[in-house]
Design a protein around this nucleic acid. Sequence first.
DNA 1: TATAATCCCGACTAATTTAGTCAACTATTC
DNA 2: GAATAGTTGACTAAATTAGTCGGGATTATA
Lengths: 173, 173
Amino acid sequence: MRLTSKGRYAVSAMIDLVKNQHQGAVNLAAISERQFISLSYLEQLFRRLREGGLVKSIRGPGGGYLLNRAADKISVADVIRAVDEQIQATRCVNALRGCHRGNRCDTHELWDSLGMHIYRYLDVVSLQDVAEKNVSLAAVELAPAENYPPCQPIQFDASIAAAGSGERIAAVS
Amino acid sequence: MRLTSKGRYAVSAMIDLVKNQHQGAVNLAAISERQFISLSYLEQLFRRLREGGLVKSIRGPGGGYLLNRAADKISVADVIRAVDEQIQATRCVNALRGCHRGNRCDTHELWDSLGMHIYRYLDVVSLQDVAEKNVSLAAVELAPAENYPPCQPIQFDASIAAAGSGERIAAVS
DNA sequence: TATAATCCCGACTAATTTAGTCAACTATTC
DNA sequence: GAATAGTTGACTAAATTAGTCGGGATTATA
């Protein structure tokens, strides 16, 4: 998962959907107008959202998109993961591979931990929360710290050359 | 603050400094070798670190860099802020400015909150922690949630066009 | 069955950013 | 004064992101 403006566009669009789908399928032209996102770009985003199973489409006149699950069952992380395709990190993935010539780099744990930290936040906040402006740190702090499910990959930016020899490092666990 | 590989390089270099400065100033050539970061690039990074008051330099033979404060008094956030210069976010900064034509966008709080979340993490972890691999989620969760100091700007990536009309939005508070 | 609305898809381009290099200069030690 | 090491600004290359364009497929409705 990466945090880019593409992800933000997608979240905005999905929130628009949450707020407008009660009257049936919402077409992209409408979202485009309300959210000031170009239609072509929305098409690109919704292709991914559909492939990711987050929305379903209805074609033809009167068609559009609907959420595929309830708004409180879709997390912000889900949306971002759907649109920002996962570039498989090539190194530094399994503890001892990559980093500095076979040695786990000193900062590996830091980025790992940060990634998990961000993930835990975005995975807890649902579209419903955002739509209701029910987003606060408190919500996250209440989430159980232990027995938290498998740490998911987070990638902060696109070009993540390791601090070393052009190899790739990412905050990926 | 932005999360890019430049910041990661800087953190790696600083950790190298933490581990090697006990014998006096550490020169960039040495860091370059150990961390596999090009000398020229290190020069660029350390200029900023020096300007940010995180390191001090000693010129001439035997010279190099030293931390300007104790390792447990420098946070990872300090380092990242020093090297990734702040691009002043033009809109969406003061609650009601920017976003969608004067209206605070629906996702504004989300990014605000996420930014603060990340900041709180990176601000708590010191270079000492990282050097000692003393980095865990627990460490953060122990930090006091309330009365936490002013929320600092976080910017996730470089090109953050708002989901709207090319205006700029950032997770900036 | 024609038409229009709407999603679907691939290829392409433009803009921005990041990463990194180069060359020359200044200060300090021996 | 020669070598070491930091200082600085300008420049380049690569990668990524954001966004466009043109055409195609599907379906409702008249």
